[in-house]
Design a protein around this nucleic acid. Sequence first.
RNA 1: GCGACAGUCGUCCAGUUUGGUCUAGGACAUCAGAUUGCCAAUCUGGUAACCCGGGUUCAAAUCCCGGCUGUCGCACCA
Length: 490
Amino acid sequence: MSNYDQIMKLALEKGFYFPSCEIYADAPAGFWEYGPTGLKVKNKLIDLWRREIVRRDGMLEIDGSQIMSRSVFEASGHIENFTDPVIKCTECGSTFRADRLISERIGKDIPERTPNDEIDAIINSEGIRCPSCKGKFGITTRFNMMFRVEIGPSAEEAYLRPETCQTIFVDFPRVYKTMRGKLPLGIAQLGKSFRNEIAPRQSLLRLREFYQAEVEIFCNPSKLDSLPFFDELSNTTLRISTDGLSVEEVTTNEGLKGGLLPNKLVAYYLSILADFYSKTGIDMKRTRFRKLGENERAFYASIAFDFEVETSVGWLELVACNYRSDYDLRGHSTVSKQNLEVIDPSDQSKILPHVFELSMGIDRSIYAILEHSFYEDSEHDDRVVLRLKPYLAPVLVGILPLVNRNGLSEKSQIIHSELKREFDTYYDDSGSIGRRYRRLEQIGVPFAITVDKITLQDDSVTVRQRDTMQQERIKVSGLKEYLRRSLQSS
RNA sequence: GCGACAGUCGUCCAGUUUGGUCUAGGACAUCAGAUUGCCAAUCUGGUAACCCGGGUUCAAAUCCCGGCUGUCGCACCA
């Protein structure tokens, strides 16, 4: 069984995630639920993001609407660019990307933004027919990956946002003014985005409705090399690939000097991201920042790095890091007719800020964390262990009476009550002690407290470590401090 | 979206070829009880499924049609 299949099975069996609407036969693909176990991991990953990125850098966090007006996406370019020209064979019904098919046939690139009637003209003049059945093609249509929704009784046109950052851009002027913003300023948002994928696949890896944690750094483009906190991260290790094959491992400083990184601002934020991911338990030796070539980049990006992780299903893009320049603010300024320029107080100049973004896929990150944490212990009956960091584990500690007699359950309940409001705990008194340890390990619980006869004599318990199976005896009065210490990430 | 293959308890699998004691069986998991008492022990008992809709037939898990989902390939992937 592949690692992907093992994670999938664990997810279904233990309530990490499962298909949406699964009791109905018409449940559409690409929609998944987080169950109780998975939600806890997700919430803790978000806590870590807030701690290690948002608060660390003094960013402002907002929570915006998922439905936004048509104008927003005219300005962002999504109405025009987030769309593929599609042709359908009239005989066999096969559909093709029109631009791809034509460039294949005539050996010349044609832009995907070519108007439909011009595409039709080329198809006719070149006599292009269906590659599978030689049938004739119908006229070119457009498939837009945004979900269109209708607002109110008059059915005003609107869309579910295809990326959370558009909310940040349209909220920027008010947030900047009311929060006394100064460039460079990070604005962060966690929320859902929606894309009508043609072929969603592989559970959390390609969803139609998914979580993004995005930060948009608004900056003065003439000051990309003066950053207040730069030195704090200048010795971070970064693994950078410019060709998608080889990886250069450098410190942030070295990357800047050697020209792998364009400026301090980009270097700093890639470093804060790398530092964050090193705390998730993902094996950093199996990660890379892949620099994207011109034809790979999104339509708004001038510099782009993908943060990728190697998994059993190949390299997986977890974070898109794009230098979007003033593309978005300029677009929104033009369409809304609002002036979105701000004063940079350091020299009183009036500028339209540029933007560098870290656009993180939460769902994919959770998958990658699970896969990199998954471990079968061949030394001990192939026990399945999720070696999650304590601050990401769905449950921090299990509380287990060794037996149910002699007042041990009662004592365990008392200890449980003392801990359960501060920590995620799990009380379990059914079955053999070994079986209970194994159940906890499978969902990544790092500690198990066992209450035995000695507990009744001296008020001490054993605390078992998930990864080593070692136990140490500690006083009940010291448990809270012990558990608190385990939650520190740095 | 196209093509191939597939869909049975929470999970994995048997049963489908050749329709009929299938009133759907097993293993693991789970629950209750007994027993043991620090690493998935044992015994007893229980819960629990034929993806959805239609058709053929005296009779459908089994055959046919449609839909949905999954896997793989093609295409797509801000």
